[in-house]
Computed example of a mutant assay.
Amino acid sequence: MAGAPRDQALSLLAAANNHGDLAVKMSSLKQAKDILISVDPSLATELFPYLAELQSSPESLVRKLLIEVIEEIGLKAMELSPVLMPVLLALLSDDESIVARQCIISGTNIFSRVLEELALQYHRRGKIERWLEELWMWMAKFKDAVISIALEPGSVGRKLLALKLLETYVLYFTSDTNDFEKPVTEASRRAFNISWLVGGHPILDPVVLMSEANRTLGILLNLLLSASSLPGSVTITIINCVLTSSLMRS
């Protein structure tokens, strides 16, 4: 029984990698993703190296879809996703902007869910599982890489998305006093805020994270000093990020 889905997934991943028709490649990858999400975790992780090979696909649309698949795995089967995080980080520097932009979008979505899961898991169980600790370490590397994209010369599209992650980071790790009295529960899940960590957390140190938020806001403010040399869309995004972050703190 286990051989059937394994063989099906391998066949589909081989088609996604080697078939001459782009439409067949895309369809095969989508079908393989459905199998990977549904099978036993041990079998899925056994197949992930074959999925990761697609990061070298010559078609940018296949690489973009690969990132979307990694995001879906990260959101639906989060405990499996640490194995795939090196692919996400590698494709951040993809030559095709469409791929790198998808990396930032998908990585930001995973980043948000990991934060929520860290808070909820500790609230429910009083401890954090090892896979989630590992995933958070990958998310920290992702955030640092995206900050580099925001600061370095390059594609405007990538930079705009990178700046939005910086804004999100500041918002997540700036205290919202209205949230302090609200318990963290599955039913009330909404955008993470550092106030969820009142009382302490074994992985997320509120003091360190608030300091990082201040540093990140400082990065945004420093970027404004060089606004005259930046594209107008980038300057507008930076201003909006700073204003939103400032309103959160007022």
Rank of each mutant, 00 (worst) to 15 (best):
R190K: 13
G3P: 07
S195Q: 08
N214S: 14
G199T: 01
V208C: 10
V234E: 02
L89A: 14
L225G: 08
V87A: 07
D179A: 15
A2P: 01
L151C: 02
L217P: 04
V99M: 07
E96Y: 12
L247V: 01
A145S: 15
C241D: 03
K159H: 04
E186W: 15
D144T: 08
M210E: 14
S246E: 14
P206K: 07
L171F: 05
L88H: 03
A32S: 14
I147T: 06
T237Q: 10
G199S: 11
Y50P: 13
K33L: 13
S175A: 15
A187Q: 14
P5Q: 02
E186R: 15
L115Y: 03
L88Y: 08
L165V: 00
S27N: 15
D95P: 10
E71R: 12
E186M: 15
T108N: 10
A44F: 05
A44Q: 02
I236N: 10
K33W: 06
L66C: 08
F48V: 03
L209S: 12
L65K: 03
L221C: 10
V99G: 06
R158L: 05
V184S: 02
P5E: 06
V242I: 12
P41Q: 08
A191S: 04
L230E: 05
T168W: 06
E53S: 04
D40I: 09
L13S: 05
V170P: 09
N240M: 09
I147S: 13
K182P: 02
F180L: 15
S155V: 00
G3T: 15
P206H: 00
L160C: 10
L36Y: 03
S57L: 03
S175D: 14
L166C: 12
L43E: 04
P202Y: 00
E59C: 09
S42W: 02
S195H: 07
E79A: 15
I128E: 05
V69A: 11
E133Q: 12
L92M: 03
L65M: 08
K30N: 03
R249Y: 13
S233V: 12
S175V: 13
R130F: 10
I147R: 09
I98K: 07
L61V: 12
L217G: 02
R158C: 14
S228V: 04
T174D: 05
S38L: 13
D179I: 02
R124N: 11
S57E: 01
